[in-house]
Amino acid sequence: MNVALQEIQIKEEVIKWRRYLHMYPELSYEEEKSSHFVYKTLLSFGNLEVSKPIKNSVIAKLKGNKPGRTIALRADMDALPITEKTNVDFASKNTGVMHACGHDGHMAMLLGAAKILSQNQDKITGEIVFIFQHAEEQFPGGAKELVESGVLDGVDEIIGLHLMPMIDVGKIGITYGPAMAASDTFTLIIKGKGGHAAIPQNSVDSIAIAAQIVSNLQYIISRNVDPLETVVISITQFVAESAINVIPEQVKMGGSVRSFNPELRKKLPAMLEKVIKGITEAHGAAFEFDYHYGYSPVINTDAVTKMIHETAVEVVGENSVERMKPLMTGEDFSAYLEKTAGCFFFVGVRNESKGIVHPLHHPQFAIDEDSLDIGVNILVNTAIKLLNEKPV
Rank of each mutant, 00 (worst) to 15 (best):
residue 32 E to R: 15
residue 32 E to H: 08
residue 32 E to C: 10
residue 32 E to F: 03
residue 32 E to V: 15
residue 32 E to W: 10
residue 32 E to L: 11
residue 32 E to D: 15
residue 33 K to Q: 11
residue 33 K to Y: 10
residue 34 S to P: 04
residue 34 S to D: 02
residue 34 S to Y: 03
residue 35 S to A: 10
residue 36 H to Q: 14
residue 38 V to M: 11
residue 38 V to A: 11
residue 40 K to D: 10
residue 40 K to S: 11
residue 40 K to N: 04
residue 41 T to P: 02
residue 41 T to I: 02
residue 42 L to E: 05
residue 42 L to S: 01
residue 42 L to K: 00
residue 42 L to W: 00
residue 45 F to T: 00
residue 47 N to I: 05
residue 47 N to G: 02
residue 48 L to Y: 01
residue 48 L to H: 12
residue 49 E to A: 12
residue 49 E to K: 15
residue 50 V to F: 13
residue 50 V to K: 08
residue 50 V to S: 09
residue 50 V to N: 05
residue 50 V to A: 06
residue 50 V to R: 11
residue 52 K to H: 14
residue 52 K to D: 14
residue 53 P to E: 07
residue 53 P to A: 04
residue 54 I to Y: 10
residue 55 K to I: 12
residue 55 K to F: 08
residue 56 N to I: 02
residue 57 S to M: 14
residue 57 S to H: 02
residue 57 S to R: 11
residue 58 V to Y: 04
residue 58 V to K: 06
residue 58 V to E: 11
residue 59 I to N: 09
residue 59 I to Y: 13
residue 59 I to E: 09
residue 59 I to K: 09
residue 59 I to F: 11
residue 60 A to L: 09
residue 62 L to F: 04
residue 63 K to S: 14
residue 63 K to R: 13
residue 63 K to T: 15
residue 65 N to V: 04
residue 65 N to P: 02
residue 65 N to Y: 12
residue 66 K to L: 08
residue 67 P to W: 03
residue 68 G to D: 00
residue 69 R to E: 00
residue 69 R to L: 00
residue 69 R to K: 08
residue 69 R to I: 02
residue 70 T to A: 09
residue 71 I to R: 01
residue 71 I to Y: 02
residue 71 I to V: 05
residue 73 L to P: 04
residue 74 R to E: 15
residue 75 A to P: 14
residue 77 M to L: 11
residue 79 A to S: 04
residue 79 A to H: 07
residue 80 L to T: 04
residue 80 L to C: 06
residue 80 L to Q: 04
residue 81 P to T: 00
residue 81 P to A: 15
residue 81 P to K: 01
residue 81 P to V: 02
residue 82 I to H: 00
residue 83 T to I: 07
residue 83 T to S: 07
residue 84 E to D: 10
residue 84 E to A: 06
residue 84 E to M: 15
residue 84 E to Y: 13
residue 85 K to G: 06
residue 85 K to H: 09
residue 86 T to N: 06
residue 86 T to Q: 11
residue 86 T to P: 10
